[in-house]
Design a protein around this nucleic acid. Structure first.
Lengths: 262, 262
DNA sequence: GGCCTGTCAAGAGCAGTGCTCACAAAGTTT
DNA sequence: AAACTTTGTGAGCACTGCTCTTGACAGGCC
């Protein structure tokens, strides 16, 4: 009942010698997050209650503060997990296709994005809706995970352009674009050789394309798209094709609606 | 300080004879909403407090329940106002261009959409983010206003297709599409002669296009677009052009980036 | 062994919330 | 002027996140 399992932990890195106490601590921390996630799914955003969690775990409410300094910190942790989870899903989908099938990779990433969003609605709402009482998670914590998430589509498109599968000149985005601080930082502290040469123009193209995809998901999940068009799956495929055309992908590489049995 | 003024009231319709009491009632109702809107802007979604409102108005908190049966009902009222407000903005922008300048009308509507969203961030968050503690406003109340909002882009595109300014065949959306209940209902109880013949395919095209625009706004307002690209205005123009191309607008009608001094 | 230190948990309590109810003070209608 | 309807009051309930003090237990030191 909790499809958004806590994603691959940052890996035990170096020292496995976990003392018995540290182990229990990790366990209860995970349990708290699991219950919180369930509450999120059942009662919607804002429906997470520390006291209710403590009641469910038969603990004093004050004990929770040994694990999370505040309500916001709990929510932030959930956000980070959600970003990690979606980033994993996107990366996995990307690797479904060989490295030289750029259009296929983009296609898969987009569909994985949608699948994850539909399967993990609470997490989707957490990240892309206004999260909870107002406070958005601080970028300091959520930044790295979000970066990992954003990097995937960027890298895929950059590789496609590099290989000639997509042409930025067949695009409405002008060649020169002023880039912000975050982008520069994101491209420098990147996953090394993943992103080759990356002019701002590509960032603009990817950004608008990615925004279009997100818009569809928001409309489908928060909005009333399902009540307007029943076969949202088909419409999404059309949407992705439109977006790919707008990104300058070669028309022959864009999959027709026929061969979409995966 | 309250840019999202309560939009044009439904008009006094017939009987102006408002008793002194009814007048005061309307006034206080409006005052409550105004303060709530301000709290929304200052403390974010979820930052609206009935008790704080009552304190500010020097009333007992229980008195507010004479005007709004619950917290949710207040929020719902704010949602409806927001929908009305954005619908007005879109309609006004549409009428900026003559009825036969279909591309110009779409262009204007998109930019008015963005302007309104940037100028009324709290309202934007209310409608398109997960609103507050979880409860989305009931469609029964928000439906008509939302319909008025959605109708504008639909009608503009339908007229464009009718006049040959846009061709659905130059589109990735398949000719046949299963439509849902809401769409049928929306097209029947429409603004009369505004929407001519309206096959589901056009709905699909408009829907995906509109979703793309929304996605950009979400990324700009909730996301970190401004930190990635500084000249978001220029990028938005490119985005709208991409979307218009994807809708099958004739390339010659899509404005170049040069003549975008309005 | 004994001891000290850091961790975990409990319970009372504070300030705040939305909401309900019985009751009093206005305003409107008959 | 009486009868009625609408507003406003204040106390109170159940709930929230959060803080503080207090007591128990486990780990590593001499």
């Amino acid at each position: 009942m909790s499809p958004s399992a806590p994603p691959a932990l940052p890996a035990p890195s170096s020292t496995p010698p976990l003392s018995r106490r540290d182990e229990r601590r990790l366990a209860t921390t995970a349990e708290i997050k699991a219950i919180a996630r369930r509450q999120l799914a059942e009662h919607g955003p804002g429906g997470v209650s520390l006291r209710e969690i403590s009641r469910e775990m038969r603990m004093a409410s004050s004990a929770l503060y040994r694990y999370f300094a505040s309500y916001d910190e709990l929510i932030t942790a959930l956000c980070v997990d959600a970003y990690d989870s979606v980033a994993d899903a996107l990366a996995a989908a990307r690797d479904t296709r060989p490295a030289d099938d750029h259009a296929g990779r983009w296609w898969q990433v987009c569909h994985a994005y949608r699948r994850w969003s539909l399967d993990n609605r609470p997490d989707f709402a957490l990240i892309f809706g206004t999260p909870v009482p107002g406070h958005h998670a601080p970028e300091s914590a959520t930044g790295p995970a979000a970066g990992r998430f954003a990097t995937v589509p960027f890298a895929v498109y950059a590789a496609a352009v590099d290989a000639g599968a997509a042409d930025p000149d067949h695009t409405q985005v002008p060649p020169s674009l002023e880039t912000g601080d975050l982008l520069r930082q994101l491209l420098h502290t990147d996953t090394g050789a993943d992103t080759p040469h990356y002019p701002p123009r590509l960032a603009g193209i990817t950004l608008t394309a990615w925004a279009s995809i997100l818009g569809f998901l928001v409309t489908e999940i928060f909005g009333s798209l399902p009540q307007l068009v029943t076969d949202t799956e088909q419409l999404f495929r059309a949407h992705v094709r439109t977006v790919m055309a707008g990104m300058g992908f070669q028309p022959t590489l864009i999959p027709a609606d026929a061969d979409c049995h995966r």
